[in-house]
């Protein structure tokens, strides 16, 4: 699981966001730096959760707000590439604000509610719901 993905995920039960990442094993896999790619991914990123997660993973400190100009602060852009795309969490846990834990094993986060009781209510809409509402 790359940190990019962590930034997109919420608790499956309550939809709470963000999930706190507690990494146990991290692997850095260097990939070719593509400035355009990072710039276009950035608008989709929630900045504060990313900063906190980068710190928790020991990847350094990002500035308080996202970089604006792709032509300056190349160090920050490269750090972003490293954090978002090159940092792979192989083992660890994700903790929701309510304390529910989701394990990451073999690089795969398991986002299934643990028990049926944890699951969201499985209301199934019927065709008639359209008119009922």
């Amino acid at each position: 699981m790359r940190l990019l993905t962590h930034n997109f995920m919420c608790s499956p039960r309550t939809k709470a966001y963000p999930l706190r990442l507690v990494p146990a094993e991290i692997e850095m896999i260097e990939s070719a730096y593509n400035p355009g790619f990072v710039q276009h991914v950035l608008p989709r990123i929630e900045w504060e959760p990313l900063r906190a997660t980068a710190l928790a993973c020991g990847l350094g400190e990002l500035p308080p707000s996202p970089p604006q100009d792709p032509n300056v602060d190349e160090d920050v852009w490269r750090l972003l590439h490293r954090i978002l795309l090159d940092t792979h969490v192989k083992e660890g846990i994700l903790v929701s604000p309510s304390g529910a834990e989701y394990t990451i094993h073999n690089s795969i986060p398991n986002m299934l509610p643990k028990t049926a009781a944890d699951a969201e209510p499985k209301h199934v809409p019927q065709a008639t719901d359209i008119m009922d509402e």
Partner: peptide, 23 residues
């Protein structure tokens, strides 16, 4: 990216914020 999940339950969508505020 691989995620073990039930449909899109894991995906942070706008209702996340609403649901969290409610909680």
């Amino acid at each position: 990216e691989l995620v073990q999940a039930d449909l899109l339950e894991f995906w942070a969508a706008p209702q996340s914020a609403v649901a969290s505020a409610g909680a």
